[in-house]
């Protein structure tokens, strides 16, 4: 029983990490169609932001809370620069964005190594996040609980922005039909920039969050980028709710597989499952219905 609860929470927690990593990507990849291989490196930038902030604010609790908005800004600004300098020149050449952003990812990794050194750095978890709470005898790590809450807050924020603000309406309009949106007077250029800013910013927040569970090093992003793409693709490109369902489903399933077999086999089973699922339903869990002539 204790173990079962522990495992169920492990699944949810893994799902929340996947969701955080994939949320920004579901905007930039899903809504804009940009294959941003540097998304993981934006996460890394967020993680190093947490490290830098902690160096100037020694209280780990305050520095974590400060790091979240700062991480969002750092990730977002990196995204803006990438968009302005490179991506806007190749919106209609997805394969080129794949290669270019992969190159950018390598550059960012090397930059991190040059600035912070090759070894991982240590970001301390605040005292109030150390330890665990007991739920029917099962220890629920507080850091995991925090990440779960943070992912839900980010999700809620994103939904509010997309559904309830003029900016969100513009983003959705551009996704549905770029040409019609443009003829209606929406500046698609500006919308693209803002979408990319938010998507990349969310990567920065995810980066701050994962410093609580893993190591902070130049390769941090490579651990998450594949999973993030898997979530977005399985959820249905362009669908936030699809990404949410896919993230938690993959998290829970991976924990179940891993528990009943081993970590390596669990990962294999998940990939097999996704391959089979995409064979049956190539558009993912949800598909976007659009009247654009694409």
């Amino acid at each position: 029983m204790e173990l079962l609860i522990g495992q169920m929470f492990a699944g949810l927690s893994l799902g929340s990490v996947l969701l955080l990593a994939a949320l920004g990507l579901s905007l930039t990849f899903g809504q804009m169609g940009v294959i941003n291989m540097a998304h993981g490196e934006f996460m890394m930038a967020g993680a190093y932001t947490a490290f830098v902030v902690q160096r100037s604010i020694s209280d780990a609790g305050i520095s974590l809370l400060v790091s979240i908005p700062v991480g969002f800004l750092v990730g977002g600004l990196l995204g803006l620069v990438l968009e302005a300098v490179l991506l806007r020149r190749m919106y209609h050449r997805p394969l080129d964005t794949l290669l270019v952003t992969f190159g950018v990812a390598l550059i960012l990794q090397q930059a991190a190594r040059d600035i912070f050194g090759a070894p991982s750095v240590d970001v301390r978890a605040p005292a109030w996040l150390q330890g665990n709470v007991e739920l029917l005898g099962a220890p629920i790590p507080l850091t995991r609980l925090f990440i779960l809450l943070l992912s839900l807050v980010c999700l809620a924020g994103l939904v509010v922005v997309l559904k309830g603000t003029p900016l969100g309406r513009r983003i959705r309009a551009v996704v549905l039909n770029r040409d019609l949106a443009e003829t209606s007077g929406i500046s698609t250029r500006r919308t693209d920039q803002l979408t990319f800013f938010i998507g990349s910013g969310l990567a920065g927040v995810a980066g701050v969050a994962v410093t609580l569970i893993g190591s902070t090093g130049p390769y941090l992003g490579t651990n998450y980028i594949v999973d993030a793409f898997l979530v977005v693709v399985a959820g249905g490109v362009g669908q936030i709710k699809g990404a949410v369902i896919a993230a938690f489903a993959l998290g829970v399933l991976q924990s179940v597989f891993e528990f009943s077999t081993t970590a390596s086999i669990g990962k294999v089973l998940i990939l097999v499952l996704i391959v089979v699922f995409l064979q049956l339903r190539p558009q993912g869990i949800f598909s976007l219905k659009t009247r654009s002539l694409a």
């Binding site: 990849f29 169609g33 294959i35 291989m37 209609h92 997805p94 394969l95 794949l98 992969f102 770029r178 040409d179 490579t222 980028i225 594949v226 793409f229 898997l230 977005v232 693709v233 490109v237 362009g238 995409l278 190539p282 558009q283 993912g284 598909s287 976007l288 654009s292 694409a294």
Partner: peptide, 26 residues
């Protein structure tokens, strides 16, 4: 008129993206 890529077409591209990332690790 602008030509855009269908969302469906993004899926194989995403697969290619993952393959690139995996190859990097391998």
């Amino acid at each position: 008129m602008r030509v855009s890529v269908t969302r469906r077409a993004l899926i194989p591209l995403a697969a290619a993206a993952m393959a690139t990332a995996l190859a990097g690790c391998g």
